[in-house]
């Protein structure tokens, strides 16, 4: 068999995935921590203040990477949900469901920091702007997936139902964004523009890109550590899980 295909099959085996994820985790957390430290140093210290928003614009280094992550993770969850529904791969079910809380966390960060940014800039904590509203709906979609997953007793059936909901959600998301935009322009004129493309100079840009990469690592680390625990729980009747439980006891 092709070595890559063989590796993929091995990856689908829970004990192999558990060990591999355990080995990767410290590296992922380390890279995430270094990236976040570097990105925030660049963003909060090195980048010059914005000529319109002065130092308040620095919230961008948290807000925008979180917004990107909230969409990226939803996409990741839906793709894994699709794989789980079509090919019934156990690992995909676990990954899709482990991604949901992380995605909800990033969506919440995005909304909260957006609110903290909006207060000094627009003079209000919340505005029914198209992006904000879509992001709020996204948070509800995440909560729906998590809620459905935890409401069904059988873990695998729960994962499949929640994955199906995630797929419905990904169809719904562009519709929501488009309709909210249309609704908003109907009620009021142009919305507040945050920043034009000309405003961002390279000293402001590179910390943003580093933060975008670092949050990907943080997501990967959190995802793998969640997936490991979920696998352990799901496979608790299997021999490899027992061995891990007994090994932890002697070391503890």
């Amino acid at each position: 068999m092709n070595p890559l295909v063989l590796w993929f099959h091995k990856l689908g085996s829970p004990p192999y995935f558990y060990r591999l994820a355990g080995r990767l985790l410290p590296w992922l957390w380390g890279l995430a921590a270094i990236g976040i430290a570097a990105g925030l140093y660049g963003g909060l210290v090195l980048a010059p203040p914005d000529y319109q928003q002065s130092d308040a614009f620095r919230i961008i280094y948290i807000h925008v990477p979180s917004a990107w992550m909230s969409l990226f993770i939803y996409f990741f969850m839906a793709v894994n949900g699709f794989i789980a529904l079509v090919w019934r791969i156990k690992l995909s079910e676990i990954l899709a469901m482990a991604a949901a809380p992380v995605g909800a966390a990033f969506t919440f960060i995005c909304l909260a920091t957006g609110s903290l940014w909006g207060k000094p800039m627009w003079g209000t904590w919340w505005t029914w702007d198209a992006r904000l509203t879509s992001e709020l709906v996204l948070l509800f979609l995440y909560l729906g997936v998590i809620g459905l997953y935890h409401a069904i007793e059988d873990r695998r059936q729960a994962a499949r139902a929640a994955a199906f909901l995630a797929l419905i959600g990904i169809v719904n998301l562009p519709i929501v964004h488009f309709s909210v935009k249309w609704w908003n322009t109907l009620h009021q004129g142009s919305t507040v523009k945050l920043f034009g493309p000309s405003l961002i100079d390279s000293r402001m840009l590179w910390p943003l890109l580093i933060m975008a990469v670092a949050t990907k690592f943080a997501f990967a680390a959190s995802l793998l550590s969640r997936a490991r625990v979920d696998l352990l729980e799901l496979e608790s009747g299997k021999d490899w899980a027992r061995q891990i439980a007994l090994a932890e006891e002697t070391s503890a």
Binding site: G144, G147, N172
Partner: peptide, 20 residues
Amino acid sequence: MLLALLVLPLYVPVLIFAAG
């Protein structure tokens, strides 16, 4: 309650167009 949570995000576009 869960049903409401699942359904309402999907209802948003419909409500927006009807209200529009």
